[in-house]
Design a protein around this nucleic acid. Structure first.
Lengths: 347, 347
DNA sequence: CTGAAAGCGCTTACAG
DNA sequence: CTGAAAGCGCTTACAG
């Protein structure tokens, strides 16, 4: 007969109370132990919990949130979750959020800016207690509007001037410089940087600064740009670049570039040439660690980014809303790691 | 002074009503045009909307959902969203959901089964109007419990006997057979299948069936298993496999295997050998389309899977809850596509 | 130790 | 054309 009751779609706190012969406030307290200060006998609590479980009672989260003003949900908003960096960061953030009693909810913003409008409308409605957002071009006014609601927001991945909130960024300049210095120290002088044509403004800025610094130090860096979306002539262009630059003895791959290049070369004709090169890959591709000849890699410090974000977010959540949050930018520095042995080099 | 008001944290429907000099029900109707049947003058509606916008009014979604019984949210639950198949499917589903007025919410279930418990508790609480779930081992009882709540659920990716609901699956057997037949027709007889050691039961079943059928037809298929997580000897084992099997003239790559193999070989010594082989890749790797020599590929029909899922889900959502949903399994068949020319072959 | 009541912010009949 | 009122399912003081 319990089974029949659980078939009746919605079991509310009333049903549990009736079954237990107590009133609903008693049930509420029994089920949220944190609130109980010895108010209800342990026996009653157990009995109520038992009944709730047997009835398969699921508290209505809307009612709960409406009453308490919090949902326990943190919105993670990115343009495209199939980007491995976002996906891995999401996993890491999720663990942290779990520990704080929150649940991370991932939302793909997608390419369509007008969909974003609709989504922000859905999500602004107090669904999320806090936001972690990789800002994308074309929605800055909406982000600005979100900030005026005073809810905790931490941005990452892209800096947007004028958004008066916290940012956690990766220091790509540092990463590129670190990789280059590493190669130079090892005696390589003909270095090529291979990168994906990116619309990541943060990366472009850091890359531009890197090239300027290299030029000022008389280090010549050849650059190969690989289009984000392969076309029929892309592979030809990659092979052509290597055929033309036989003086190159070392390569730095920007995020995403290594896999695309190796896939192209594997079916091309220049691949034996690349086997003798010293390679630094700035990427999160785990399997790179195990290739021979070894590759040195610079890893985006996902764990550190995650911790920085959660630290800032947590501070904002627990802070009284009256208190001005500390607005600022953290630049997280990637580390250089020697393959196989995982030696962390100091700068 | 509007600005000041929008600083006051929470603007409710009351504030809008007061500002407009009407009562809250009028505001509610004005803001949800669908409900209005010429009840309120167009002028009033415009005026109220204008005020709502100026005050930056965001309806409280909890109150709304509590009252209406629906959230407009569809939960997409997978173990790990960084799996490209899930990520791409999520993007596709999202577009479909948008068109139906729903918002797709992605949730990483993660490896920790006890976290799943907590999450299901949070999400069972009527947060989602419907669920799209890739079942994972160790949570079948919870999924069973979810089904008893009668909410619309469609499973995909993995079949679980005993879960009495709809499944949308990919026919891996068909894909493997299709690829093999294609190679045989082209005159290749020494075929190797390269696959990732997978814990995807659905793939294992289909693969086993494929091997049995091949054996029964006296087709010898060599198999190379690549561990999911590269170890120090993995690359060596891959190279060793190719060194030992010089008779192989054609390769079929299971999902995920192509990239790993090519990355290994690119740094290894056997790569020139693979350039002369006929290759069929069963994968969603877009850039494969543009490699030379060309690769034939079999693509997981993400769009079709997406449509099947949404069709089943939509039927369940719009059906009266009294009506028994049609429970069943769709096996979506991957297509074989000749690279560059995109010829769809009929079976 | 337990119950009655208010109220979170909406929508939806219903009455005027 | 517009307003008053009920109620969605909870939690939280408060009263006993």
């Amino acid at each position: 007969m319990e089974v029949q009751e659980s078939m009746n779609q919605k079991i509310s706190i009333k049903d549990v109370a009736k079954k237990a012969g107590v009133c609903i406030s008693t049930v509420s307290i029994a089920l949220n132990k944190s609130t109980n200060k010895g108010l209800i006998s342990q026996v009653t609590i157990e009995r109520i919990r038992d009944i709730a479980k047997r009835l398969n009672y699921q508290p209505n989260s809307f009612a709960k949130s409406l009453r308490t003003g919090r949902s326990g949900l943190i919105g993670f908003l990115v343009e495209d979750i199939s980007n491995p960096f976002y996906a891995k960061l999401a996993s890491a953030l999720e663990n942290q959020a779990d520990q704080l009693g929150y649940t991370l909810v991932i939302t793909n913003l997608g390419k369509e800016r007008k969909n974003f409008q609709r989504k922000m409308k859905a999500f602004n409605g107090h669904l999320f207690d806090a936001f972690i957002i990789a800002p994308i071009h074309g929605i800055y006014p909406q982000l600005q509007a979100l900030l005026t609601t005073k809810r905790p927001v931490v941005f990452f991945d892209q800096f947007v001037p004028g958004l008066n909130s916290d940012f956690v960024l990766t220091d790509h300049f540092h990463a590129l410089k670190l990789g280059t210095m590493h190669l130079i120290k090892k005696g390589y002088s003909n270095i090529a940087l291979i990168k994906i044509e990116s619309n990541n403004q943060q990366f472009i800025n850091d890359y531009t600064r890197y090239m300027r610094v290299m030029k000022s130090r008389d280090k010549k860096i050849s650059v190969l740009d690989i289009p984000k979306h392969f076309a029929n002539d892309t592979q030809k262009r990659i092979i052509h670049f290597f055929d033309k630059h036989h003086e190159i003895d070392a390569l730095i791959f920007a995020p995403g570039a290594f896999a695309k290049t190796m896939l192209s070369l594997g079916r091309g004709t220049t691949s034996s040439f690349i086997q003798n090169m010293k390679i630094v890959a700035y990427d999160n591709f785990d399997l790179l660690k195990h290739l021979m000849p070894t590759i040195t890699f610079i890893s985006t410090p996902i764990e550190e980014i995650c911790l920085s974000i959660m630290e800032k977010l947590n501070a904002k959540i627990s802070a009284n809303h009256e208190v001005l949050p500390n607005v600022g930018t953290i630049k997280v520095k990637p580390l250089i790691i020697e393959a196989v042995n995982y030696i962390t080099l100091k700068e």
